[in-house]
Design a protein around this nucleic acid. Structure first.
Lengths: 197, 197
DNA sequence: CGGACAATACCTACTTATAGGTATATTATA
DNA sequence: TATAATATACCTATAAGTAGGTATTGTCCG
């Protein structure tokens, strides 16, 4: 089963990071991006196509019909509302609700329920970006800032092999620059920013 | 220089974890405990003796004179108030204030100031990370994935100049790899992840 | 005024990376 | 079991980046 992808959109940096930290306890999911700007929501949702969108109603682009259609009609995406308002359930319909004051267990239970529901339908897959696990590993080393030579030494393979892998990666992903690959690796949780130097 | 210790007390799990995540970017400090229960504050502060207490006023034990004495008289401990109220500064005196909506940089700047004040005794400064605004701009382009040639064309300068800037940047920051520079640029808000390709 | 710094430019020698190939053994999997 | 995909290896040429310099303008500030 592919991991469910989650987007978090909230004005507060602390809330975003805190929620991500809590959600790291979930097995079958990964938070792929945090959004802090109302204007970015539409574009990023379209680009990343998450399975779950956790969003503060304040960030909901009221005028963006595209996202709403995707949210409510196509039913591809689970919508979870994140807010400090108590009576949100009565005002807005969504698949789930998280309050700023909710404890970790409350949040995790609710999320697990959503994940179970989503995976029941068992859609095949859609991620065309299928790089092999070996390639993922190489990519990780690239994003960490190692040279081809260093990667080769570390993995006990020849530099030619590294080069070949690298060629395949850049071709598959359509990303040529090291910075692009680095961002890709971060976004896909291959590395964390702390590790890089 | 010993690392400064920080305690965080707030009702919201998300806020606690989010703030801790943000503060991990600080060099000379570490968050030693998160407190979610008003009753525990006094005891934990006494036991752990942190250098900095970040606390939601709702958690402040109004009846606990010990903590207050330590806070305001002995002046050993820096008090930072954490809240979603805007007008907090007028109501309560503290060494610093964090609003739920504050961005990461705002928070880190404020905290760094507190840390510097506390550590005034020792070292003068250490932020050798002073790259010029021009260098910042070059760095931005590097992190965006442009080649030296492309940067030169875009800024109407010769490729030699770009190379020289690049040399200075890598020397000043001590970061050699493009991926490292990319992460640096993201972390310092020179670019956002979306822009990279 | 004079020194420090920033921005610019150029040079050589050297290292790394990219783009185009070909090729073979192993491993899934239809 | 065939076939596709993966991991491995090597090649040539060319492009790009790094490391070590030097040098000329400005501008800001003590």
């Amino acid at each position: 089963m592919a991991r469910s992808t989650i987007l978090i959109a909230d004005n507060s940096c602390m809330i975003r990071k805190g929620l991500r930290s809590i959600l790291q306890n979930l097995e079958n999911s990964e938070v792929i991006q945090l959004i802090d700007n109302k204007e970015d929501v539409c574009g990023i949702v379209h680009k990343r196509k998450p399975d779950i969108l956790i969003i503060n109603p304040d960030m909901l682009p009221g005028d963006c019909l595209d996202v709403k259609r995707e949210l409510f009609n196509e039913n591809k995406l689970s919508l979870i509302l994140l807010s400090n308002r108590k009576n949100l359930k009565n005002d807005l319909k969504a698949d789930g609700y998280i309050n700023y004051m909710d404890g970790q267990n409350t949040i995790l239970d609710m999320m697990q329920e959503i994940l179970n529901k989503n995976n029941k339908s068992s859609f095949p897959n859609k991620n065309s970006e299928t790089i092999s696990s070996r390639e993922k590993n190489i990519l990780k080393h690239i994003a960490l800032g190692l040279t081809n030579k260093e990667i080769a030494d570390q993995l006990f393979i020849s530099i030619h092999t590294v080069v070949t892998h690298r060629k395949n990666i850049t071709q598959k992903l359509g990303i040529k620059s090291v910075s692009g690959l680095t961002v890709y690796a971060i976004l896909h949780n291959l590395i964390s920013m702390d590790e890089v130097k």
